[in-house]
Design a protein around this nucleic acid. Structure first.
Length: 830
RNA sequence: GCCCUCGUAGCCCAAUGGCAGAGGCAGAGGACUUAAAAUCCUCCAAGUGUGGGUUCGACCCCCACCGAGGGCACCA
């Protein structure tokens, strides 16, 4: 027995600490959630919780997510499915490296220590994971397949290196993918991101933009709309046209992208991104070259955050050069400005101030002409200052005059294409995924740079390309990868020609690891390949994915991308990795997110000691809909303790023997049981876990009453009810459920006994109360058979004394009857 | 500025267009107890953010507004 006397539940309840210790070894031994048994004929389901970063022990957020994932996984096990519910660690990344620098130890040591702590906590938290399949991404046996994946990408032209102005986090001293920059700040440390010109590795996710967008139709209704919207916004597809403009004094024309080719006749000037090469070229040798250079310096100094402010006044420099509008030969003055982005489209635009607000703002600031070419019926933009973006008949537009927008676009696109001056095109906001990182604790990029052969992939039989030992390396962030200092590691002979060459010293973004880890679980013990296609195709796609909304774009978009690449390689047979997605809410305290600095941190370990594992799990799941945030101040773990004790006490009251024939039991209680089982199952399948728990609470209350003042403890219905309660509770409160099951005279595991079978005939109530309304207002209630017909109910309603009285002198215009629930009598005069 | 979601007892939350309350927390009273705790029983409370509309009937569907949260926001 426990000697801990700080707990508040010792009184009439069971000893939680003792029960927890009692069952863990039993479960270890029975391994109820092992999913790899070869003779297992059960249908398959794959339930996956996003794997954690091992930054310390588990916290309340983990506790909520894993409690929810567990309800789903355990439910499908009870329903007779062979459930794959694995767990692993997203073990590469900066926190380990930063901790290692601080303490002067190997990041691996810190990482593996934390993994051990988390794993032990997950066991004590009774997570239904299949531990046979676990892995850590920092293990060479995992990351060698990261390297394999990289080489597959490289060989297909989907991994490439280019020089570009990249996002740079000055604090972490590494580059970031676009997805890792949130509102101009580093997603990880909130430091303002700067730009740096670097040659880096990219994955060509833009090749998959259309499929990433279009395949979302498969996810509609099964993923939160919010996430789908965020991904759509992120990909940002637009349709329009690419149009060639000649530049005076330049041989080559310049292509611009526009979504409104119908407004070509309304172009009154031309703008190039000030930080583009084109701008520099056009400015060169002109009288304004110096002015341009000064402007460029000024805008380069401005941070991304400044640039993001939309109400910033427009600025720019007239380059004293001209572009020729291809449809009417007009000379358009060319300006350089920072309101045009160098890396979207071609970095050059035609400006149509009448119908584009940004162009209008610029025109007004620079005193440039405004020409209306779409008759929208709104006020003249040059007067109102508001560009008119709507549809209408084209004017001042030559052959387009009189046409509506869509027709004009089709016409002009065809004409441009015919004349070789342009054609319809699409553009995306999505950029290629920058995967190089200048840090130590990640997967080495398996490329050798050779002066004669260029970029050469490390031969597959030489994988894993292991990280050099951390000992002796300076891991401090300094803007270049620490791997560069590992001379013996860096200097190799070229795999192709054998001449001296150098390894790539960057490591991969850790999102590469998580972009395919879910494929590894079905065959994680196979060390000859990344995954066995037959196993992956048998288990995947993931039936239910559970994790935080923070990965709405990053991890989920990358995973979808890699899945499609592997599909194209014929290695897997599905397009989308995650069929259903649940984003659990956050756990807050007193109205704000928990944090040490706020002083409102609730320690999971403390809560577990005070209330027990089951009560914490129950509290988190019962607190509300899973996707809602939970305020720990609003939930009552001690209330959960009380409820669990109440349920547990029932199991000790039952005086019948196991195996008794339920059909002889009290019908009223049996009906309550079958309704609860039916409704709770439906609620779980609809992810309304809080409602499922309410149904179990109801049944506990009904059973208490039945035992105390109804059919009594020996009635078979009482046993049926309490056994059903134990089984349903096994999804949420596994210790209590197992303890109840044992007290009911059974052997473990309650987790495997199967969801109680619902007898449909017991779902029909004996008698119901039907409501009689007059003009929608309730006048009377009558007890009726659940099988009553509309006609019978209407007759009884109209014959009821109260109704007869109420209808005196009134004209009945209509009677609406919905047996067995309601009769509504519509009268015209009272 | 645009888009999405949500507003139900003191609080957290339920309710296929059909009796607004399932469940819990908090509160009140009672039983048991020498007393307290625990347990058991009973009770209490909103007319669904506001204003319109559709309907025999609206928390639910439609429109507008108010409030909260989230996403997007020089992407041509």
């Amino acid at each position: 027995m426990s000697t801990d006397n700080t707990r508040d539940f010792v009184h009439e309840g069971y000893d939680v600490a003792y029960v927890q210790e009692k069952w863990l070894p039993v479960w270890d031994n029975l391994a109820p959630f092992k999913s790899g048994r070869p003779d297992d004929n059960r249908p398959k389901k794959y339930v996956l919780d996003m794997f954690p970063y091992p930054s310390g022990d588990l916290h309340m957020g983990h506790a909520e997510a894993y409690a929810l994932g567990d309800v789903i996984a355990r439910y499908w096990v009870q329903r007779g499915f062979n459930v794959l519910h694995p767990m692993g660690w997203d073990a590469f990344g900066l926190p380990a490296e930063n901790a290692a620098i601080k303490r002067g130890i190997d990041p691996a040591v810190w990482t593996y220590e934390n993994i051990a702590v988390q794993r032990a906590s997950m066991r004590r938290y009774a997570c239904s994971f299949d531990w046979d399949r676990t892995f850590n991404t920092c293990d060479p046996e995992f990351y060698r397949w990261n390297q394999w994946l990289f080489i597959q990408m490289f060989e297909r032209g989907l991994a490439y290196r280019k020089a570009s102005n990249v996002n740079w986090c000055p604090k972490d001293q590494t580059v970031l993918a676009n997805e890792q920059v949130v509102a101009g700040l580093c997603e990880r440390c909130d430091t303002p991101v700067t730009k740096k010109k670097l040659t880096q590795w990219y994955f060509k996710i833009t090749d998959y933009a259309d499929r990433l967008l279009d395949d979302m139709s498969q996810l509609e209704g099964n993923w939160p709309d919010k996430v789908l919207t965020m991904q759509r916004n992120w990909i940002g597809r637009s349709t329009g046209a690419n149009v060639l403009f000649q530049i005076e004094g330049r041989d080559e024309p310049v292509t611009i992208y526009t979504t409104r080719p119908d407004t070509l006749y309304g172009a009154t000037f031309f703008v190039v991104a000030a930080d583009s090469e084109l701008a520099a070229e056009l400015a060169k040798g002109t009288a304004v070259e110096k002015q341009f250079a000064e402007y460029l310096e000024k805008i380069k100094a401005a941070s991304d955050i400044d640039r993001l402010a939309t109400d910033r006044p427009k600025s720019g420099v007239f380059l004293e050069r001209y572009a020729i509008n291809p449809v009417n030969g007009e000379k358009l003055p060319i300006w350089a400005s920072d309101y045009v982005l160098a890396d979207y489209g071609t970095g050059a635009i035609m400006a149509v101030p009448a119908h584009d607000q940004r162009d209008l703002d610029f025109a007004r600031a620079m005193n440039l002409p405004v020409r209306v070419v779409v008759e929208t019926g709104e006020e003249d933009p040059s007067v109102s200052g508001i560009a008119t973006a709507g549809d209408g008949a084209l004017i001042n537009s030559g052959p387009l005059n009189g046409k509506p927008k869509d027709e004009a676009i089709a016409f002009i696109n065809a004409q441009l294409e015919r004349d070789g001056l342009g054609k319809a095109g699409r553009n995306y906001r999505l950029r290629d995924w920058l995967i190089s990182r200048q840090r130590y604790w990640g997967t080495p990029i398996p490329i050798v740079h050779c002066e004669s052969c260029g970029e050469v992939a490390v031969p597959l039989d030489q994988l894993p390309l292991k990280l050099p030992e951390a000992a002796g390396l300076d891991l401090k962030p300094k803007g270049t990868s620490p791997l560069g200092a590992a001379t013996d590691w860096v200097n190799v002979s070229c795999p192709k020609c054998g001449k001296p060459a150098k390894r790539d010293t960057d490591t991969m973004d850790t999102f590469v690891d998580s972009s395919w880890y879910f494929l590894r679980f079905p065959s994680s013990t196979d060390h000859t390949q990344a995954f066995r296609s037959e196993d992956v195709n048998a288990w995947l796609p993931v039936d239910q994915y559970v994790g935080g909304i923070t990965h709405a774009i990053l991890h989920l978009l990358y995973s979808r991308f890699v899945t499609k690449v592997l599909r194209d390689m014929d290695m897997i047979s599905f397009d989308e990795p995650f069929m259903r997605l649940l984003n659990q809410g956050m756990v807050a305290m007193d109205g704000s997110a928990m944090s040490k600095s706020r002083g409102n941190l609730v320690k999971l370990s403390d809560e577990l000691v005070t209330h027990g594992v089951d009560a914490v799990r129950l509290s988190l799941v019962f607190a509300g809909p899973p996707e809602d945030d939970i305020d720990w101040a609003d939930v009552s773990p001690s209330g959960s303790v009380k409820f669990l004790n109440r349920a547990w006490r029932l199991s000790g009251d039952i005086s019948s023997a196991p195996g008794i024939d339920y059909s002889l039991g009290d019908v009223t209680l049996r009906k309550a049981t079958h309704k609860a089982v039916n409704d709770a199952g439906f609620a779980v399948e609809s992810m309304r876990f809080n409602v499922a728990i309410a149904r179990v609470m109801e049944l506990v209350n009904a059973t208490r009453k039945a035992i105390d003042s109804g059919c009594g403890p020996s009635d078979p219905a009482a046993r049926e009810a309490v056994e059903a309660i134990a089984i349903m509770l096994s999804l949420i409160a596994p210790f209590t459920a197992e303890e109840m099951w044992e007290r009911l005279g059974h052997k473990p595991c309650v987790a495997l006994v199967g969801w109680p079978k619902v007898d449909e005939s017991l779902l029909i109530a004996d008698a119901l109360v039907a409501v009689i309304q007059i003009n929608g207002k309730i006048k009377e209630r009558i007890e009726v058979s659940p099988l009553i017909s509309d006609d019978q109910l209407e007759i009884s309603a109209l014959a009821h004394p109260t109704i007869v009285e109420a209808l005196k002198g009134a004209t009945v215009t209509k009677v609406v009857t919905r047996a067995p629930k309601i009769v509504n009598i519509v009268i015209s005069n009272p």
